[in-house]
Amino acid sequence: MTGMLSKAGAVASQQGNRVIAFDNVAYSYGGAELLSGVTLALQPGSFHFLTGPSGAGKSTFLKLCHGELLATQGTVTLFDRDIRGVNRDGLARMRRRVGMVEQDCRFLDHLPVATNVTLPLSVTGREADPQDLSDLLHWVGLTRHAGALPPQLSGGERQRAALARAIIMSPDLLLADEPTGNLDWDMSLRLLTLLVELNRMGKTILIATHDLHLIRAAKTQVNARVLRIRAGRLELAGADL
């Protein structure tokens, strides 16, 4: 595990001075504005949590970071490039540097879990090191399920498979939407350890979660900051946690 992560660790230092930057961003799905006046910059190697009530726009925020949604106002910059100005192939290349764990993890249901996990490598013509893959699956507790098809997994197993897929190509940025939503506390801590380890290698981490215990546990290990969405605004919620 650590072998795989440290191999790619060197790459992290090459990135610019802001991994993600929002400049006065607003977003609406067509009706009223869901987010407005959002300004923010995530430094390389930072660790952030994103909280807020259900429906506040956490998932929406992560999708704006990933280029799946385009801001209705303002600019979103990923790796120092305005997402709006990047063509489709360019966006695809940028996404290879971003690991995304969606809230509703989606897979290619006809391919086994192990193949799904290595997919980010396959689509760029690379192959996963079998040892790395087996270490990774072991760490997320999916060794037994490597050959299973995604529809045969439980909700928590899907989340772990999605996390494994998100970090297999050792991304510079990890966006995770409720990655521990369906997990027991032990497994949550185990995944947190993995995220902290990634962060120590210089990866930038942004996790949307409701889980205050997880945030507290993280704060004992890394310098994690907490962002909160309240009434369409993004604010820093540091001291009160």
């Binding site: 192939d89 290349r93 940028m94 971003v98 290619l108 997919l119 980010p120 689509v123």
Partner: peptide, 16 residues
């Protein structure tokens, strides 16, 4: 379509 969406999300280019 779901397959295409997943592939786009993990960084596959349209041509691929």
């Amino acid at each position: 379509a779901p397959v295409l969406r997943v592939l786009r999300q993990i960084g596959a280019q349209d041509g691929y």
